Simulated assay, not measured.
Amino acid sequence: MAKLHFKYGAMNSGKSDTLIKTAYNYQERGLRILVIKPATDTKSSDAVVARGGASRPVDVLAHPSDDLRALTLQAQEGTGAFTGLWDPAEGEVAPIACVLVDEAQFLTEEQIDQLFELAKDDQISVICYGLRTDFRTQVFPGSRRLFELADNFDKLPTMCRCGSQAEFNCRRVGGTFVFAGDVVAIDGEDVISYESLCGSCYRHEREKAT
């Protein structure tokens, strides 16, 4: 039976790199996949790019109003936005074995529901990769819904500068840590950057900022 998986971790935990490797493993075995990324993540445009440099094109750049279940089924059948993707005369096309989602925290709760339906009603496995919380330590709505619905959770660890396991995504603007502002601000845009910190280092930086 197909399942909905959520692999989460702080920044620099290798989420995108793991997605790219998983995509390669499926395709190496002749299995079809569909890679989805929210359009909210403007970094690298229509590709999944790992910090180590590996990249893979995105099949669906999802906007908040998009029905991800419908788009996946269209991609499987070669209809809708995917008409002409292949020639039916070439023979039957294999079904999609797995949907891989990068930056899943930016999806809407409704889109997470659609991915759940895709797994349970259409028997297409879904693996979502994303952050648990934003830079204010608040859970993203998409991530919250994944914790409510996913069959499996897998935490991808990364290290804080002190050597402890990092839990929090801390935002810098011009080199200074900030703890208020818009939820979405993409790493690398303007003077914005992020650092993954453990709870103790996070509290230390927050106290310094107040």
Score class of each variant (00 low, 15 high):
residue 141 P to L: 11
residue 26 Y to R: 11
residue 116 F to I: 03
residue 1 M to L: 12
residue 123 Q to D: 14
residue 29 R to W: 05
residue 12 N to V: 07
residue 51 R to Y: 08
residue 59 D to C: 08
residue 182 D to T: 08
residue 107 L to W: 08
residue 55 S to C: 14
residue 197 L to E: 07
residue 153 F to M: 10
residue 80 G to L: 07
residue 161 R to M: 11
residue 18 T to G: 04
residue 180 A to W: 07
residue 193 S to G: 00
residue 4 L to Q: 10
residue 130 G to W: 07
residue 202 Y to A: 01
residue 36 I to F: 10
residue 139 V to Q: 13
residue 137 T to L: 00
residue 200 S to I: 10
residue 172 R to C: 07
residue 165 Q to C: 05
residue 28 E to C: 03
residue 200 S to Q: 14
residue 5 H to L: 14
residue 72 T to G: 02
residue 87 D to Y: 02
residue 12 N to E: 12
residue 113 D to W: 02
residue 81 A to V: 12
residue 166 A to G: 04
residue 137 T to I: 10
residue 177 F to E: 05
residue 132 R to P: 02
residue 23 A to F: 04
residue 193 S to M: 03
residue 150 A to F: 00
residue 2 A to V: 04
residue 131 L to E: 07
residue 150 A to C: 15
residue 36 I to A: 00
residue 72 T to I: 05
residue 103 E to F: 12
residue 79 T to K: 12
residue 101 V to Q: 13
residue 194 Y to V: 01
residue 192 I to N: 11
residue 128 C to I: 10
residue 28 E to M: 15
residue 61 L to F: 01
residue 11 M to G: 06
residue 137 T to Y: 02
residue 204 H to P: 02
residue 164 S to W: 09
residue 110 E to C: 00
residue 183 V to A: 03
residue 175 G to A: 02
residue 122 D to N: 12
residue 156 L to K: 09
residue 99 V to S: 05
residue 196 S to P: 11
residue 153 F to D: 04
residue 119 A to Y: 05
residue 207 E to K: 15
residue 17 D to Y: 14
residue 40 T to R: 10
residue 76 Q to V: 06
residue 72 T to V: 14
residue 180 A to T: 14
residue 43 K to N: 12
residue 27 Q to F: 01
residue 205 E to I: 01
residue 148 E to H: 13
residue 10 A to Y: 04
residue 105 Q to G: 03
residue 56 R to W: 11
residue 13 S to T: 07
residue 34 L to G: 13
residue 185 A to W: 01
residue 45 S to L: 14
residue 191 V to T: 09
residue 202 Y to G: 04
residue 193 S to V: 01
residue 192 I to V: 11
residue 92 E to R: 12
residue 35 V to F: 13
residue 171 R to Y: 03
residue 183 V to R: 08
residue 76 Q to T: 15
residue 93 V to I: 10
residue 197 L to W: 09
residue 67 D to H: 09
